[in-house]
């Protein structure tokens, strides 16, 4: 007996993600899904934002890692509310995990929620977490070819952060190739050069977060 099902494989995750989105919208909280390879500096960018934003926007964080609470401890040391998700080896976050983590955050005390996905340039891309915007982080030590090798991630993001820019003089990073690849994959996407170590570019990163938070607030008012 053949049953025509015609059902999206992602149906359950998509519905849970919509639930997350609705909860955050109702509270006027913007949500950003940060994706990158392990070690490109997602947590450092979150720390830099917390240290430089002067409490505006009010930032909450969900940390996704296969194991340990190391990242949550770093974020908590900056004074921000944070929930650590351990995926027990899982290669990406899913909306059910984010939905559960929301229960541990006071959404009324937040303007923006940063979700640091599991370090991975492939799997996280497939799972909607209920975010408003997506960010790809690449560090110059990873090489200029990453957007070309992982095009789907870079096609679907609203911001590309090129981190560890202070190391450019020491690595063979072809900036023209990198920028050209990103622009061809995602015309018009904003690319920010940042060094969390020197602080260069952190102002622009914070400004982008403020603008993202303001859009969510307008959405609530509407």
């Amino acid at each position: 007996m053949e049953i025509k099902l015609v059902q999206k494989v992602m149906k359950v995750n998509d519905e849970l993600a919509q639930g997350v989105r609705a909860r955050l919208r109702a509270a006027g909280v913007a949500c950003v899904n940060m994706m990158s390879a392990p070690g490109s500096g997602k947590t450092s960018l979150i720390e830099a934002a917390l240290r430089h934003c002067g409490g505006s926007p009010r930032i909450g964080v969900i940390e996704g890692d296969p194991d340990t609470t190391l990242d949550a401890e770093r974020v908590a040391a900056c004074g921000a509310p944070v929930v650590q998700i351990n995926t027990d080896g899982g290669c990406h976050l899913e909306a059910n995990l984010v939905g559960r983590a929301l229960g541990d955050l006071d959404l009324d005390a937040l303007d923006i929620l940063l979700i640091e996905n599991v370090g991975n340039l492939v799997c996280p891309v497939a799972f909607d977490l209920g975010e408003d915007r997506r960010v790809a982080v690449v560090s110059v030590t990873e090489g200029h070819d990453k957007p070309a090798k992982y095009p789907k991630l870079f096609r679907g993001v609203d911001l590309v952060v090129l981190n560890k820019a202070d190391l450019l003089p020491y690595v063979d990073f072809d900036m023209v190739f990198f920028r050209d690849t990103v622009r061809r994959l995602n015309p018009g996407v904003l690319i920010l050069d940042v060094s969390c170590r020197t602080g260069d570019g952190v102002d622009a990163w914070v400004a982008w977060l403020r603008e993202t938070a303001a859009v969510a607030d307008k959405g609530k008012a509407g």
Binding site: I3, L5, V6
Partner: peptide, 9 residues
């Protein structure tokens, strides 16, 4: 697309 089209029992 990532769709379960049919299930045969």
């Amino acid at each position: 697309e990532l769709i379960i089209q049919s299930v045969t029992l």
